[in-house]
Design a protein around this nucleic acid. Structure first.
Lengths: 193, 193, 193, 193
DNA sequence: TATGAATGAGCATTCATTCAT
DNA sequence: GATGAATGAATGCTCATTCAT
């Protein structure tokens, strides 16, 4: 329990740990409170309800993906390199936080449709980044002129997501980050003209 | 209720309808029993527990994917065409059964980790088909010699899955089947040498 | 636990005992179930929710008041005697069931406004009987021609209710039934011309 | 918020408004504090607990009934007129303060048995006034010599209370004060010899 | 085989009260 | 005196599963 952290941060971090350790359906509010070192009632001073904890958690963590990759992308001029950075960054964040990986790839998907729809809203910001890279590449001629951006985005995100999920399901026993160049190469070939 | 159908088939079909209509978390055993036209207790003469209904349902339906695509693939000689047939078949089955699409892409994913791990076991059979196509293509020189089969398979399945999920989330309001050629083209480029 | 009684009767009787013994706010569903000799869940096979138990209880018990007094009233020709019978019957039922008296006069009044409004609906049937007696008396000339039926009814019910409540609050330590003639005499004088 | 008022008065008035507006069960201490313009904790500098607020509120308001009716009664020589003044005063106070009427007739009755027993203690002072009027009337020969004072008092209070409650339940949509003479006439006839 | 009444474990949330500042 | 953030006990209801018939 880190007393210097604001409570809402403490609670979100506690939720990641508890969900990762116990699974989505065994992550009771009281467990999260205990892990966060606060009383059950305190949770409700910072979150509207349990659902709100999950959405907030996803929002906070997803922001990390977007915010950390943004400067990396800006440094690159070639769309191909931007795409590589995005993949590397995505794999890197999850590889460095095994609990988060479990939560996002396995546990949070058990939430009900309403939560998942809200999560998708949060995701959209990240997917816009992918779209930007694709459009950049098409403008510079790196990527095929007739590329269907929506389909290509679905391919890129679907591939990244499937790769990470498989890795998590295999108990993270191989190195995810070193797959990045190969995944990148595959996706790049699909996009190039 | 078709009296000629064996009860376990009746129950599985009832489960698809009930889950699709009510959502995973509102698909109580009693609802499934009612829809199947049997008593609650009867369910337990054919299935070990509720989980068993879901796994069996997935196994039955997944078998349709594998069995229907098998002859189509055998007719084709080129790996590229085999891949096209697989994508077309996949999209076609789901486009023709909106309930099934909702259940496999949205509802069943809310099941707990244990069920999803079992579902993944069932999926493996289907993924082996993809592997076969990839290896065929590599042998004939259609596909890159250094293709990482596991990654390519994750890309192919991830892309197909993401495409279908997006289509279901958009309430199936555009034509999924006509996306097949474009998705095929993207994936093909990624695999080709 | 009387196995011959239908369960819903068992549960209602259990509710009267539990509320009387523990008070309205300490009458948990689990206590009622235990007292009725059934599982918690069984309650919900017979009642929609806790509120429904209370309303049903009141309806059942109020029906006893109306149904038991009806034949007594019909036997009498004079309105004055009808009124006496109603008061005697009212006091008699409550005097013979101390638990019921506590529940109706003290505990059930702690229920929320919604329940109390529903209870009032049930009461209306009983109050109609009072109105009938009053109108009878006015027709036969026993009662004043200018009697305001609504006010007279409020006086009669208000007096009966206050008398019973005071008796319950004094822990039922004097004889309620022997007050009937005196209460009757008071109310009669107010109604007579 | 009137800064000149002592805080405990502020809090009691806030309680009346909050209970009237939100209902007994939605009248949280924090809402009362907010309405009174003080912090939650401040409540506990002036009241032992929430129950104490309610009792104090009832005591304060009940005192108004007794104190306002006392001089009116003293002016009258005839017991009949004293009774009329008491009824008129009772109706008048509640008709002029709709919030108070709601709180005393509907909301406060949802409080638990303990609170209601304490409230009854407070009421006794007021009921003694009724007793005094009755005894006066008996001494002067206005009222029947064999009048049972306790029963007559219960009739008077029961009738007044039921009349007001019915009026509040009917959303105060008719004129309560103009009912006073008729209620008076009814009760008078019951008491007269 | 088939039934369906009965079971009972499990959990998010509220709110009166406290106490360090 | 005044504050308000933090506390933590307490409970109605659902639904997968059983088992006597």
């Amino acid at each position: 329990m880190n007393k210097t952290k604001p409570k809402y941060k403490q609670i979100i971090d506690a939720a990641v740990v508890v969900i990762s350790d116990n699974g989505y359906h065994q992550a009771q509010v009281s467990k999260i409170a205990k892990q966060a070192g606060v009383a059950d009632g305190t949770i409700y001073l910072y979150f509207k309800n349990k659902e709100d904890i999950l959405i907030s958690m996803f929002r906070e963590k997803m922001a990390v993906f977007s915010e950390s990759v943004q400067p990396l992308i800006e440094k690159e001029t070639k769309a191909a390199n931007k795409l590589l950075k995005l993949i590397q960054n995505h794999f890197s964040i999850l590889a460095q936080d095994p609990n988060l990986a479990i939560v996002t790839q396995l546990e949070l998907r058990q939430s009900n449709k309403e939560i998942r729809l809200l999560i998708n809203e949060v995701l959209k910001e990240y997917l816009k980044l992918v779209d930007t890279i694709l459009k950049d590449g098409m403008e510079t001629g790196e990527f095929a002129q007739d590329l269907d951006v929506r389909l290509a985005r679905q391919m890129i995100f679907g591939t990244i997501d499937e790769t990470v999920t498989t890795w998590v399901m295999n108990e993270q026993k191989y190195d995810l980050e070193e797959l990045a160049p190969k995944v990148h190469q595959l996706l790049l070939k699909a996009c190039q003209s």
